[in-house]
């Protein structure tokens, strides 16, 4: 009986010892990551794929400094807006087509939706305007969107919202708000998934 007790104690001792040793050597990768503070030169990585879409230098700072965003103006079919919107009244030949009848505005809450001039500059149609009256370029629409969606903008600047273009290395180029979201109805539409999965073997 005593023999058994002794062996039990022995066993307990060893289990305890190995456990404490194990816990001490159990270093997580998270600690290693936290301690990695040296700057990594992203431009040292030789790239095979370049960003082909037009991008402009952002007017705000990312945690590591400057970065680029995809340009928007080139994607707006009838930019410049001032080619129609002059001081004179607009006379449109094909009214339905040219008076933005195709735009469905579903932005903001249901009872208090946004109107055109909540974002567009009322006089200078080549620009946007925020609630402080600042003129904002179409390429830098994040400055406008961020006045309401400040959380998303903060995440976007850091890299937790939105995405980079093509490369993880090299100069940081990110998608603009309007690259993914239609500014007039920003929520993604429901649709069928691109594929389906079969059961695993």
């Amino acid at each position: 009986m005593t023999k058994l007790n002794y062996s039990c104690l022995f066993l307990l001792f060893f289990v305890g010892l190995s456990h404490s040793l194990g816990a001490a050597s159990e270093k997580s990768i998270v600690d290693e990551i936290k301690n990695a503070e040296d700057r990594f030169d992203n431009r040292s990585v030789p790239l095979v794929e370049q960003v082909v879409d037009e991008a402009v230098l952002a007017k705000e700072e990312y945690q590591g400094g400057s970065f680029r965003v995809l340009a928007r103006k080139a994607k707006i079919e009838r930019y410049k807006c001032s080619s129609c919107h002059t001081d004179k009244p607009v006379t449109a030949q094909q009214g339905a087509l040219l008076t933005h009848g195709d735009i469905i505005l579903e932005h903001g809450s249901e009872d208090q939706g946004l109107s055109c001039i909540d974002c567009h500059h009322p006089q200078d149609r080549d620009y946007l305007e925020d609630k402080k009256g600042r003129k904002i370029d179409f390429d830098h629409s994040y400055q406008l969107c961020g006045q309401c969606h400040f959380r998303q903008k903060r995440d976007w600047l850091g890299g937790a919202h939105g995405k980079r273009v093509v490369n993880w290395a090299g100069e940081r180029t990110v998608y603009n708000c309007t690259t993914c979201h239609n500014p007039h109805s920003p929520r993604f539409e429901k649709r069928f998934p691109a594929t389906y999965s079969v059961e695993l073997d």
Partner: peptide, 21 residues
Amino acid sequence: PTGARVFGNLLDPESEIRYVL
């Protein structure tokens, strides 16, 4: 299409993945 996936260098303190962590 929704930007739900973030990828990068964990050893780079200025990478997006480090920002997320």
